[in-house]
Design a protein around this nucleic acid. Structure first.
Lengths: 250, 250
DNA sequence: CGGCCCTTTGATTTGAGTCAATCGTGGTGG
DNA sequence: CCACCACGATTGACTCAAATCAAAGGGCCG
């Protein structure tokens, strides 16, 4: 709750300066639109700028909840989110992660169904909300945009499939190695985009992203540590031998 | 190989009568277009009719292979397919199933990447191939179509997510129960759409679809049998107590 | 200093895969 | 028509990865 109030305070700050925040320059340079909105006409640009509502969320804040009506598509400007489904009280399954430039909630909006997963920030994130109806209007009048969205969704869908295949077919060791390589290569730089290949992340969080438990993850990481692949210092993980990690990731 | 020749023979038969097969009446009544192509203009209808190439595949035939260029979107007219990825020689992970009315290969085509899974028929199936470029043209000039495709892909993506969550979180017993309920409810009537809730399917096939091994599946089914939920007679499965099954599926 | 939270470590359990043997059926050829 | 074979299903024994349960550590903050 105190988190919520902090978020609110921030969002007010943002809102107060909305007109200057959402200038054309700002929007064009925003990772959010770079790929998908490139095809917009000038007039559509203007409308998009007018409808996008930026918010700053603290780490661990919920952007939307599973089961609630899909009122907006969210565009990540900075930070990262994880998407998950809650099963039976406290038990959650991560179905994906999203980074700057990604659209979240798109699938629920286009299919006019409630969100079917919950979006929570992994770290502090700035996210623009685009009202669902406005968004659909835009996509409905611009086939190029729709095609780009289609492409993006296809790739997203592929990632989910990769997760499915990975979790079913690869052992925790390999999954962990893959995860670390991803982080290191900055393909996904979820937390601490540091130069020195250092990673700081809650073990519980990391375990969930990999699809295992904190205990098993701890053992796995220490296994890697003993083999000289990682340096472990409490929460901090430093990758010492990236090549070995890549080999393990196969 | 002999299968292949049979398929070929059949496809020739189909091709020979192509003009009569792909009449407007035929296409409109075809499950294939019912939902997605409804929004097409008359002229687009005509073009679609002209470009769709129907084929009949025997059970176990491959429609497309993982890694090959995505040259067409396939529209299932009858029968069912399974999509899977091959891992290391013989080890395959099923990522989904497709029924009449579904589009297969759509994701690869719109993202202009090679197919990333293999499509194989579960039972004899009739499938229309729509050349990729033609398809994209159509989608590019008709935003409504693009939006419908978007919606369809979103739902498909949701199904993959469901699989991911299910495999990670539910035991084989529950997954099996779910699978059987699905079959029984005809949500997916993969094989033998019989009235009497009977199912005939290769155990290996079924095991793969559920995400387990034939041995484990056999034990699970017999567990259900002992509890009076199923009647097992060799390959034949008859559902005796659907309610119990639904309860197990949770 | 003490309490709390997160991480680590140890011990145990367990669901399901693997390996191997047997059984039943259906097809084949003599 | 029958013996035989091949293939899929079943059953049993065993193995194993990872979850779970339980108990320390260790650092950080009030």
């Amino acid at each position: 709750m105190q988190e919520a109030s902090r978020v609110h305070a921030r969002s007010q700050i943002v809102c107060r300066s909305k007109k200057s925040m959402i200038t054309s320059a700002d929007c064009r340079s925003c990772a959010c639109g770079v790929e998908v909105f490139r095809c917009l006409l000038a007039s559509q640009w203007t409308r998009l700028r007018a409808m996008a509502l930026p918010h700053v969320y603290d780490a661990g804040a919920v952007v939307f909840h599973e089961g609630t009506p899909a009122l907006a598509v969210y565009c990540i400007r900075s930070g990262s989110l994880r998407l998950f489904r809650r099963m039976n009280l406290g038990d959650e399954v991560v179905v994906g992660m999203r980074e700057p430039g990604d659209l979240v909630g798109l699938r629920a909006v286009v299919s006019r169904l409630p969100y079917w997963s919950t979006a929570m920030t992994i770290e502090r994130a700035t996210v623009c909300a685009i009202p669902a109806e406005r968004f659909l209007e835009l996509a409905g009048e611009n086939a190029s945009l729709a095609l780009l969205l289609l492409k993006r969704m296809a790739l997203e869908s592929r990632l989910v499939e990769d997760q499915l295949v990975g979790r079913n077919h690869h052992r925790v060791g390999k999954r962990t190695a893959r995860f670390l390589v991803q982080l290191a290569q900055g393909h996904a730089r979820f937390v601490s985009p540091r130069p020195g290949r250092e990673i700081t992340m809650n073990r519980e969080e990391m375990a969930r992203l990999i699809g295992t438990t904190p205990e098993t993850l701890s053992r796995t990481l220490h296994g890697f540590g003993e083999r000289g692949i990682l340096d472990l210092d409490r929460k901090l993980i430093r990758i010492r031998d990236l090549d070995a990690l890549v080999r393990l990731a196969d």
